[in-house]
Design a protein around this nucleic acid. Structure first.
Length: 264
DNA sequence: ATGCCCTTGTAACAAGGA
């Protein structure tokens, strides 16, 4: 089975590229972030025409997450228990069970600057996410995938000196991420198809992509049963090329996985 | 060449992204 995660930076602006990519890559499950549409604005018919069921959670111009699946889409949950708002709830997490794996598509708050209230919100959100994922991890095969807006190490930033005193690299953010992993989740790092660093995001400005000045902030965290079934994981930089791309590339994971059958 | 901000909402910018 093949699953993927992709911050598309507007599913409406990206729709032609998303449909081409779905047809070519054919993931069984896709976690989307930054769809930037309310649920009733999600282009469900176009995606269903390619064989996918859709669960979308959105709120308008910002945020928005979704899970697409062609191997079942059960027990959909919007957000998670104890999720903080800013101050109101935001569409940053959606969960569904597909082929016996509990997937959560995640869009962590940006944080803006370390002295901004949004940064405090980011840390609280990550702490609450950890608590919510603990139940999933205890229950069975789990994947938490998406845009975590944290670079786990200095090697995950093209020039860590330029990020001193910025969000995405601060020790509290990295500690919050480590606490999520400490639930028993493994970091499934995609292979870079060019260069030696597994970046998943490149700023639109100043030719950052063609200079490979990027960051690894999109992550796939998986329980041991799933991680042990990984045959390959790739960062699809082809999707970052050309006209009208997202500023993030998808991570595509191939598993040797047989979904549990119906109960006898 | 992969090629030098983008998206949405609302009215020429404002806000957010990372």
């Amino acid at each position: 089975m093949r699953f993927a995660t992709w911050n598309v930076n507007s599913v409406k602006a990206r729709l032609p590229r998303l449909l081409d990519w779905l047809a070519g890559t054919a993931p069984d499950v896709l976690c989307l972030q930054e769809t930037k549409v309310p649920a009733d604005g999600f282009p469900a018919a176009e995606v269903q025409a390619l064989g996918y069921d859709v669960a979308a959670y959105g709120q308008g111009r910002w945020n928005g997450v979704a899970v697409l699946s062609r191997v079942g889409l059960d027990d959909v949950r919007l957000g998670f228990p104890g999720e903080p708002g800013y101050p109101d709830p935001e569409a940053r997490a959606i969960s569904a069970t597909c082929a016996g794996i509990r997937f959560t598509s995640i869009y962590v708050p940006n944080g803006r600057t370390p002295d901004d209230p949004h940064y405090t919100y980011k840390l609280a959100w990550l702490a609450a996410l950890r608590d919510a994922l603990a139940a999933d991890v205890a229950a069975g095969p789990t994947v938490a995938a998406g845009d975590f807006n944290v670079a786990p190490t200095d090697d995950d930033v093209w020039d860590p000196r330029l990020f001193a005193d910025s969000t995405h690299v601060t020790p509290p953010e990295r500690a919050a991420l480590a606490a999520v992993r400490a639930l028993g989740l493994r970091d499934i790092v995609g292979r870079p198809l060019k260069g030696d660093r597994p970046f998943t995001y490149w700023d639109y400005r100043a030719g950052m992509f063609h200079q490979n000045k990027g960051m690894r902030i999109d992550l796939v965290y998986a329980t041991e049963d799933v991680a042990g079934a990984v045959r390959d994981a790739v960062i699809d930089r082809e999707a970052r090329k050309g006209k009208g791309p997202s500023d993030h590339a998808p991570i595509v994971v191939d598993l040797d996985w047989t979904a549990p059958g119906p109960a006898a």
